[in-house]
Write a protein that binds this DNA or RNA. Structure first.
Length: 197
DNA sequence: TGAATGATGCGCT
DNA sequence: GCGCATCATTCAT
C-alpha cells in the first residue's frame, strides 16, 4: 500500500492541493465495505473573496468546517437529494476546500453498484453527487479527519502532461476563475462537453 | 448531441 | 421565499 497523505499535504495553497490531488487514491473503510477510487477531477473553492465558495458570506454554522484544520472532510447536502464531498485546505482560520468531482473505481465496485444500481461502471463516479452516492457518503461523513483510518488518501503519481485546467462547472458566480482540474483521457471526467478540454 | 426540465430539502436573507 | 458546487429523463434537432 502506498503512503497515506499527511496533514502537511493539505496545509498548502488550495490550487496546489487541488492539482496534486489528481491521480491520488481515496479510500473509505465503511461498514458497507472498503471502497477505493482514483481521483480524476476536482475544483477549488478559496476563501471569503471567492463568490462561489460556501465561505463567501463569512462564517456560518454550515461552513465552519472550512475554517478549521486542513485535512478534514466537508460534506454538504444539495438540491434536496445529493451530497458533495470536499477536502479542507490551508491553515486554520482560512476557509478553503477542494471539491471531489470525479474518480475511477479501484476497489469495492460491487458495493458501488449496489449504491448506484442504475449507473454504468465507467461513469459511476463521474460527478460530485454520483461519487457520494456510490460511496454512500453523507453529511454524517463531514468533519472526518482524513489523516485517520476511516477516510484517507494515498499517494499516487499522475502524468503532469495530462492535467487540464478550466473554469468551474455548475455555478453562477465566480464563473471565470480557472479553478477546475482534471486528467485528460479519463472517461470518468464530468462536466459539459465544451469544458471537457 | 444538446437544451430544457423536474425532483426535492435546506441554508440563508 | 429564493437559490443552490446535481443528475436523469425528456424532447428537439
Amino acid at each position: 500500500m502506498s503512503r497515506k497523505l499527511p496533514r502537511s499535504f493539505y496545509n498548502r495553497p488550495t490550487l496546489d492541493v487541488a492539482r496534486d490531488l489528481l491521480g491520488k487514491t481515496i479510500i473509505c473503510d465503511l461498514p458497507q465495505g472498503r471502497l477505493g477510487a482514483r481521483i480524476v477531477e476536482v475544483e477549488a473553492y478559496i476563501g471569503e473573496d471567492d463568490p462561489a465558495c460556501h465561505a463567501a458570506p463569512g462564517p456560518t454554522a454550515r461552513n465552519q468546517v472550512m475554517y478549521g484544520r486542513p485535512g478534514f472532510s466537508y460534506v454538504y447536502f444539495i438540491y434536496g437529494m445529493y451530497h458533495c464531498f470536499n477536502i479542507v485546505t490551508e491553515r486554520r482560520g482560512f476557509p478553503a476546500a477542494v471539491l471531489l468531482r470525479a474518480a475511477e473505481p479501484v476497489e469495492g465496485l460491487e458495493v458501488m453498484r449496489q449504491n448506484s444500481p442504475r449507473s454504468r461502471t465507467a461513469t459511476i463516479l463521474s460527478g460530485p453527487g454520483k461519487f457520494c452516492r456510490a460511496f454512500g457518503l453523507t453529511v454524517e461523513h463531514s468533519e472526518v479527519d482524513l489523516t485517520g483510518d476511516v477516510i484517507y488518501l494515498c499517494d499516487a503519481p499522475a502524468p503532469e502532461s495530462d492535467i487540464v485546467i478550466t473554469r468551474r462547472v455548475g455555478i453562477n458566480k465566480g464563473v471565470d476563475l480557472p479553478f477546475r482540474f482534471f486528467l485528460d483521457g479519463s472517461s470518468a471526467v464530468s462536466g459539459l462537453s465544451h469544458l471537457r478540454k
